[in-house]
Write a protein that binds this DNA or RNA. Structure first.
Lengths: 340, 340
DNA sequence: TTGTAAGCGTTATCAT
DNA sequence: ATGATAACGCTTACAA
């Protein structure tokens, strides 16, 4: 049924070797043979068997993404954009992108070793890094090629792409302070996550720099969902000395924060300012529109995709430590006068 | 560096054949040998090379998802949930799920043939089916194993999982009519999509059944985004004889519809009723909360995943035509009295 | 310019 | 109960 090099070879009365070389445009094949082989291959509908090639080349030509079900959800718009862009880069390069889901934290490292050991993939993509990430330690220890979406707080050396959350947070807090806010809160996901760690760091640093007090009870942890934002805001607003501004770790949380404020009969932007991180499409169309720190998701995806390709090919990664700069997008939720 | 069967064989002084059989629990291996082999494999850290196995078995043990960049976005919450559940089923079965992105409609069929021909995948998953879908025609013609997420309007026979949009729409329209609405609009994506076709069909059918006129100019097409819903609502509301209820093809569009209504100074739920399809998390937390036809995304994913696994294994699919029933979720956007 | 032969790591067939 | 041999489809020394 399926056509192999052997079939072509028989047809054109040449050896399999010659056919292989002809198809790969080797110089030491006569033009006539090359043409004949190509024509015949076309005619017979030859499609190379990549599995055989992989066995011979000892390369899987594939990249693995292991997605913790407790980690970034595919439905997270930002992550979806990153993933799309990365998948695009990877398929463009002729490699496969394999996705698998892992449910329990205790199973989170084994799949990496397994997939690489089994030769399913050449390199893996680690997402949602934590400050002290077992996965990274494991991969480094076993010398498994990988690229991380995010840094860690250890002084380990490995390729990563990350966003400068501290800087983004700094410009956001400065913006709020300029508007006169003195009691600013931050609600983020677990501080175990490197991203959240840097958000908190930027938060504290900005307050300090402006000579403002840091109220630790205004730094809270919550789920990275709209619901999580809602709950956190409720708690914060019920405090005596409630904050006049609430920053959320991501835009979905920020939308939840806005809901909570509105449900208390307060006005977002005047009574309480709100801001998020990400700049998902909803940020622009919410009521009021949402001030946010834009994360360059597509660029992240492109870059991480390219790095993964190099890593999978065993090439040196040209620029292995990439820190992308976010951009502050000011909208109505911090400044109602804005009519965008 | 990497341990193969040969290494184990040498170590235990047996043939490669025996080692292979021992590891696969064949009956014709002595208990001692089996134990010895297992122990040694463990000790040496043997990991089977699936590429070699695939070549020998002539199976890729993998499933391909080819995602049109103009089709369902990964960030579509519903699709993300379907995909997660399917990926879970697939990896549980020991198969790989490969994702690739295709950009141009003219390139949308070739990748299927290529991936299967190259033996990268055994079976493919077609999403976002259209009424007359070239992809399905192509796959059937070439006898490529596949499972479709959605039906077509041809009388072709192939395995699919779909949602009964017509029925969902019917109960939604009935609900609105009961509330007294007579001018109901529907804004959906292109009617080329089977899902939208059935939504329209259910829409017309429900009106007919209740003896109401069908105003064709209240059936409009728009992008499946919040923006698309916003624009469609603006157009609809500017008509003389504007509708008193607007149904959107999905929840994101419905949110856009709500924004447009609010921006015109009208109240959602009293002045104009709004409903969507999907029941994404945002539907429950929007202001007002959104009436919607719940799509059982996770179940869809599980089912399609299981079907793909059977298909990839060359097994007969036990129940190849699955039509899942949606559920009407009534919230404030059609009935402001509801205090949920 | 072309061909022969070996090898990638596994499984299957057929002996012993 | 075990082993020798071939085969899966391809690439690549090496030889001619």
């Amino acid at each position: 049924m399926t056509v192999t090099l052997k079939d072509i070879a028989r047809q054109v009365n040449r050896s399999v070797t010659t056919v292989s070389r002809a198809l790969h445009d080797y110089a030491d094949v006569s033009p006539e043979t090359r043409a004949l082989v190509r024509r015949t291959a076309e005619q017979l509908g030859y499609v190379p068997n990549v599995v055989a090639r992989r066995l011979q080349k000892q390369r899987a030509d594939a990249i693995g993404l292991i997605l913790p079900s407790y980690g970034p959800r595919l439905s997270d718009p930002l992550f979806a954009d990153i993933l799309s862009a990365a998948a695009d880069e990877i398929t463009r390069a002729g490699l496969d992108l394999l996705i698998s889901i892992v449910h329990r934290p205790e199973d989170e490292v084994a799949p990496y070793y397994q997939r690489v050991g089994e030769r399913r993939v050449d390199s893996v993509w680690v997402v949602h890094t934590r400050c002290h990430d077992r996965r990274i330690a494991y991969l480094l220890e076993r010398r498994i090629p990988f690229v991380a979406g995010g840094r860690v707080l250890e002084d380990w050396v490995f390729p990563y792409v990350d966003v400068d959350y501290a800087r983004g947070m700094h410009s956001l807090v400065s913006h709020l302070i300029q508007l006169g806010h003195r009691r600013i809160a931050f609600a983020g996901e677990s501080a175990e996550l490197t991203a959240v760690h840097y958000q908190r760091e930027g938060f504290r640093h900005a307050l300090q720099e402006h000579g403002l007090a840091i109220y630790e009870d205004l730094i809270v942890e919550s789920n990275p969902t709209q619901r999580g934002g809602y709950d956190a805001a409720q708690t914060l607003l019920s405090r005596r000395d409630a904050p006049t501004a609430i920053i959320a770790g991501n835009d979905m949380m920020a939308l939840g924060v806005m809901s909570a404020i509105q449900d208390q009969g307060l006005e977002v932007g005047s009574d309480v300012a709100v801001a998020g991180f990400g700049d998902i499409p909803l940020a622009e169309t919410s009521h009021p529109t949402l001030t946010t720190v834009r994360v360059p998701a597509q660029q992240m995806g492109r870059v991480v995709g390219q790095m993964l390709v190099m890593s999978a090919r065993g090439q040196e990664i040209s620029n292995p430590y990439v820190l992308l700069q976010p951009e502050l997008i000011i909208r109505q939720s911090t400044d109602l006068d804005l009519w965008l």
